[in-house]
């Protein structure tokens, strides 16, 4: 009986230690950062393999230096013209923050996005709406790579698509 009790104590102690060591690992675990916030590594499940950076070691993170021919007005006009709204989209009001890169050949790729509600909290929307917005943004062809201090670069940028009851709102 005494031996049984000892086994139980040892087992409890081991359980306690294992829980404690897991907690320790969680506390000391450091977040893993890429070289720069917003760097987007190639993901074969998401990305077009034909999109290449001209110099992947030096991609600019200067949003304003990536322009659209005709400015934001032209970009939004094109976006709204191409967007095919469905009745089911009317349930959504919120924002798409869509990040992507433009390479030195003016091609866009590495699209990633966050969908947030009116409180800027992460949310979801009808799958068909998400696909429509992302495919429409991917179809925009008039991006211009950044020129910074007289030199051409690949660059990251992002756009915000604001929707009210499924309609895209202009800036």
């Amino acid at each position: 009986m005494k031996a049984n009790k000892t086994y139980i104590y040892i087992a409890l102690l081991l359980v306690f230690l294992s829980c404690n060591s897991k907690k320790e690992t969680e506390v000391t675990q450091k977040p893993e950062y890429l070289d720069d916030i917003g760097d987007t590594t190639f993901n074969p499940a998401l990305d077009n393999a034909n999109f290449k950076f001209c110099d992947s070691t030096n991609v600019l993170h200067k949003r304003a230096s990536v322009a659209y021919t005709g400015g934001i007005t032209a970009m939004e006009k094109e976006l709204i013209k191409k967007y095919k709204k469905q009745p089911a989209f009317e349930s959504f009001t919120g924002y798409f923050f869509i990040r992507f890169a433009v390479n030195c050949n003016n091609e866009s790729g590495r699209f990633r996005w966050e969908i947030v509600d009116e409180e800027f909290k992460e949310t979801s929307c009808p799958k068909a709406l998400e696909e429509e917005i992302i495919s429409t943004v991917k179809s925009l062809q008039q991006w211009n790579y950044p020129i910074y201090r007289g030199k051409s670069y690949d660059g990251y940028t992002f756009i915000i698509v604001k929707l009210k009851n499924g309609n895209i709102l202009r800036s």
């Binding site: 916030i37 917003g38 993170h61 990040r99 966050e114 947030v116 800027f120």
Partner: peptide
């Protein structure tokens, strides 16, 4: 700041 400047709204906020 870096998150907000680069469109990572959830992480930045």
């Amino acid at each position: 700041v870096a998150y907000l400047k680069r469109g990572l709204i959830v992480e930045g906020l």
